[in-house]
Structure formats: structure tokens, C-alpha cells
């Protein structure tokens, strides 16, 4: 898992090393700003949501399993 974290960190470093100018967008005058923001927002939303749900479920189940191991009477 640490390695995934490292990869992400490296990717962020690589991204931030790129010049700010890359975020300029001279060709973006054809569609409205709201539309572009909506696409960006929904992209982030759709991508993060499933991971959040799975992570949440994973943590919950782990807790349940840990809890039941410590105190088997609890789960009855």
C-alpha cells in the first residue's frame, strides 16, 4: 500500500513541476465556463464516490471482524 502512496506522491510532484501555464486554456472559448466546471466536478464526484464507498465498507467490515474476534458474544 505504501508503494501506491509513493506513486501518487510522485505523480503529484511531477504535476506540480509542470509550469503553471499548462493550466492556461486559450482554446477554451467555445463552450461556457459553467459547462466545463460541471464536467470537471462530475468527473471528480463520480471517480471519488465509489472509492469512498468501498473504503468505508472495507473499514466497517474490518472493524466488525476485529470486534467479533475480540468479543465473540457481541455479534450474536
Amino acid at each position: 500500500m505504501m508503494r501506491v502512496g509513493m506513486s501518487t506522491l510522485l505523480a503529484f510532484l511531477a504535476l506540480s513541476a509542470l509550469p503553471e501555464a499548462l493550466w492556461a486554456c486559450p482554446v477554451c472559448f467555445d463552450s461556457s465556463d459553467e459547462n466545463r466546471q460541471a464536467f470537471l466536478a462530475t468527473t471528480i464526484f463520480l471517480s471519488i464516490l465509489p472509492l469512498g464507498m468501498v473504503a468505508g465498507a472495507g473499514i466497517y467490515i474490518r472493524k466488525r471482524v476485529r470486534g467479533s474476534r475480540k468479543n465473540p458474544a457481541n455479534t450474536k
Partner: peptide, 18 residues
């Protein structure tokens, strides 16, 4: 990372600037 730098700089030139 090397490929990324190459790809993004070409992309910037072709699609992102005018």
C-alpha cells in the same frame, strides 16, 4: 515521468495553445 513530460508538452503545443 519522462514520457509524461514529452506527451504533455506536445499536447500543450497542439491542443492547448493557439
Amino acid at each position: 515521468v519522462f514520457i509524461l513530460v514529452g506527451a504533455v508538452s506536445v499536447w500543450y503545443d497542439v491542443k492547448q495553445q493557439l
